[in-house]
């Protein structure tokens, strides 16, 4: 279980995160909704170990990982862009985290990457370079590469933000499926209300450096600050 306690972060006098605390059960997804510049990325980067918090701690299965280097946390952070390594093929990208693990044999690495490609329906793209892939395909490779790192926690920072509406919808369905099959624990950050609802098991609303947590949709709907009720009202009115 992930336990985040009293995380705070200042940037040149501006308090970006104020005593953020929340828990996340294994195999669950926490959707964090919030506007741009609300501190979502900062929070994820702190959990991943890419930024240092000013105070507070992060525990994973009761072990404090707050001071650990990013590579020792087993937390993969995925950016809005797929960030596939341009000097490697799709195969090279998928094999990348496996090769960092020195215990695996060459055959094993090759097999695992091919199995993953099969699962993500990109087996025919293995020898292509990132520049030759569509947005959706790139994002699949990105997920595959992350999963092959066997993370305990996946942090997704608006991963579908750059995709067109249709690809975005199909990627949401695809990710839900992968998430269930691989029993992933993840934090999914988005500014899109609908996406937050689709992706999460639990919900968070991050504003002005503070987080509010909701264990159900109904609970989130009740809190007027999330704007969920307004959104529902809008669509109902439109339906007439």
């Amino acid at each position: 279980m992930l336990k985040v306690t009293n995380i705070s972060k200042n940037y040149s006098g501006v308090e970006v995160l104020k005593n953020i605390s929340f828990d996340l059960q294994v195999n669950k997804t926490l959707s964090i909704l919030g506007k741009s510049g609300g501190g979502k990325t900062t929070l994820l980067k702190i959990i991943a170990g890419l930024l240092r918090q000013d105070s507070g701690e992060i525990l994973f299965d009761n072990i404090n990982i707050s001071e650990k280097a990013p590579e020792l946390r087993k937390v993969v952070y995925l950016y809005q862009e797929p960030l596939l390594f341009p000097h490697l093929t799709v195969r090279g990208n998928l094999e990348f985290p496996l090769k960092l693990n020195k215990t695996l044999s060459k055959d094993m690495i090759k097999r695992k990457a091919e199995e993953m490609a099969e699962e993500l329906s990109i087996a025919d793209q293995l020898d292509k370079h990132p520049g030759q892939l569509s947005g959706g395909q790139s994002q699949r490779v990105n997920f595959g590469r992350a999963l092959l790192a066997s993370p305990r926690l996946l942090l997704l920072d608006e991963p579908f933000g750059n995709l067109d509406a249709q690809t975005r919808a199909s990627m949401q369905t695809f990710y839900k499926k992968v998430e269930e099959e691989h029993q992933i624990t993840s934090i999914f950050v988005t500014h899109d209300l609908k996406e937050a609802l689709i992706m999460g098991d639990r919900y968070g609303f991050l504003e002005n450096g503070k987080i509010r947590e909701y264990s159900s949709l109904a609970e989130m709907q009740k809190d007027s600050i999330t704007g969920l009720q307004n959104e529902i009202n809008f669509w109902k009115e439109l339906e007439g």
Binding site: L50, R73, V75, Y79, F85
Partner: peptide, 12 residues
């Protein structure tokens, strides 16, 4: 970001 990604993928 790519450099940071390597770290979270397990690289030093």
């Amino acid at each position: 970001n790519m450099k940071q990604l390597v770290r979270t993928l397990g690289g030093n």
